[in-house]
Computed example of a mutant assay.
Amino acid sequence: MAYSRHKYVDADFDTTAQHVRQILDSEGFATPCEVNVTDSFRNLLGKEFRNYLILMVGQPSMAHEAMSSDPHIGTLLPGNLVIYEQVGGSVIAAMDPALLKQLAEPVPEQLGQAMETLLEKLFERITS
């Protein structure tokens, strides 16, 4: 089973990252944390790596509702959205929401649907 969904974008890494942040913000999703993997590998390991960013994405009201009913679901939240440099462009990838539904039963339907809708809108709106 595929564990992620992804989309290739014919735009450079910085442009893609900026556009993704704008779309997330306009759709009401927060990114409480970002991990710059490139800088982390350089600083911690002394190794170079392609431009790679992990955005931890969530919708606070739904996360609160989900974690109020099942505190363990926090192990799956927030969801990671990655953006990385690929030859000639960038790739955006996230966990397949169907996998979340399989991992955490019952997942509040609102949360699973929100993730599904976000990916659809993000992939539709991002420049390809």
Score class of each variant (00 low, 15 high):
Gln22Val: 07
Glu109Gln: 14
Gly28His: 10
Leu99Phe: 07
Ile83Asp: 06
Gly46Asp: 01
Ala30Thr: 09
Gly79Lys: 05
Gly112Thr: 06
Val20Glu: 02
Ile92Asn: 03
Thr75Ile: 13
Val37Glu: 01
Ala66Gly: 13
Arg50Ala: 15
Gln86Leu: 09
Met115Pro: 00
Arg125Met: 14
Glu124His: 08
Asp14His: 14
Gln22Lys: 14
Ser69Glu: 14
Ser4Leu: 14
Val37Tyr: 02
His6Ile: 00
Asp39Val: 05
Gly46Trp: 08
Met67Arg: 01
Met115Lys: 06
Lys101Gly: 15
Ile83Thr: 05
Leu77Ala: 11
Gly89Cys: 10
Asp39Cys: 00
Val20Ser: 06
Glu85Ser: 08
Leu77Ser: 10
Arg42Gln: 10
Asp39Gln: 07
Arg42Trp: 00
His6Trp: 05
Thr38Cys: 09
Ala104Trp: 04
Ala94Cys: 13
Val37Phe: 06
Val57Arg: 01
Tyr84Thr: 08
Asp14Cys: 01
Phe41Arg: 03
Ile92Ala: 08
His64Phe: 10
Gln113Trp: 03
Phe41Trp: 10
Tyr52Thr: 05
Glu120Thr: 12
Gln18Pro: 00
Glu124Leu: 09
Glu105His: 11
Ala11Tyr: 03
Leu81Asp: 02
Met67Glu: 00
Asp70Glu: 12
Thr127Phe: 04
Met62Ser: 12
Val57Glu: 00
Pro71Ile: 15
Glu120Ile: 06
Leu44Arg: 09
Gln113Tyr: 07
Gly89Val: 07
Gln113Thr: 15
Pro78Trp: 02
Gly112Gln: 07
Thr16Pro: 07
Met115Arg: 10
Ser61Gln: 13
Glu27Ala: 12
Val82Pro: 04
Thr117Leu: 13
Phe29Asp: 05
Ser4Pro: 00
Asp70Cys: 03
Pro32Glu: 03
Ser90Leu: 05
Ala2Ser: 12
Ser4Tyr: 15
Ser90Arg: 03
Tyr84His: 15
Leu118Asn: 11
Gln86Trp: 07
His64Asp: 03
Met56Arg: 12
Tyr3Ser: 06
Met95Asp: 00
Gln86Val: 13
Ile126Pro: 08
Gly79Ile: 08
Ile73Leu: 11
Asp14Ser: 14
Thr15Tyr: 12
Ser4Trp: 13
Gln102Ile: 05
Val91His: 02
Asp14Tyr: 11
Leu100Gln: 09
Tyr8Lys: 10
Leu122Ile: 11
Ala94Trp: 03
Leu100Arg: 00
Pro71Gly: 03
Arg21Ala: 14
Asn43Ile: 01
Pro60Trp: 08
Val107Ser: 13
Ala30Pro: 00
His6Arg: 12
Pro60Val: 04
Gly74Leu: 04
Leu103Lys: 08
Asp25His: 10
Thr117Ala: 15
Met67Gly: 04
Val37Ser: 02
Glu34Ile: 10
